[in-house]
Nucleic acid binder design. Structure first.
Lengths: 93, 93
DNA sequence: TAGTCTTACGACTTGCGTAATTATT
DNA sequence: AATAATTACGCAAGTCGTAAGACTA
């Protein structure tokens, strides 16, 4: 049977989560992405809601990753890198 | 120097192009994705505009891929597969 | 007080269906 | 006629900044 094609999370959500995971900080991620704290906070939450999985734990200062968040962050990093490479190769022609 | 982070094409654009490339047909891609012909046509065009690269050649019946389109389709397929795997792994917990 | 995350609100951007058009067989 | 791709139009959904709030050191 062909899978119903699970609907994939949007690019901004993935980028926001990846940056937040790497910095262990919503506000640092916002700085890097040139967005506001609020935007990144919403995006990470939206991603968790879509996936039905808790990815980060909200802490007093900064954030911590859940085990699932840790694994997913690595995967997302690979996805973004692969895509960046692909578009990069197109550009230089 | 850190790259200004080239802005990545959105997920619907990538999915539409990948399906169109695989089927060599806009309308077949639309069928698979449960979208209209018009939507897929616009998305492929938007992707080409964003990337500044021609990916498909419009033909009398169906479409053909440019060399760049062919290479990019493979890359996009890998990206989507990687992401689908990643989200799939999250689900089964 | 300063640093952090969250969230309601409104504006803007993106994605999409409808439906008309063009072109090919 | 049937099949395939494109596009103008309007609506729906997604994204974002602002601004206010809560919590901690």
């Amino acid at each position: 049977m062909s899978q119903p094609r699970r609907l994939l999370p949007s690019m901004p959500l993935l980028a926001a989560f990846e940056a937040a995971a790497r910095h262990r900080s919503i506000s640092a991620a916002a700085g890097e992405l040139a967005l506001t704290q609020g935007a990144v906070s919403r995006q990470v939450k939206a991603l968790e809601t879509q996936l039905g999985v808790r990815l980060i734990e909200r802490r007093r200062h900064g954030i911590a990753l859940t085990p699932q968040g840790l694994a997913f962050a690595d995967d997302v990093r690979a996805v973004l890198a692969l895509l960046a490479d692909a578009t990069g190769r197109l550009g230089q022609n």
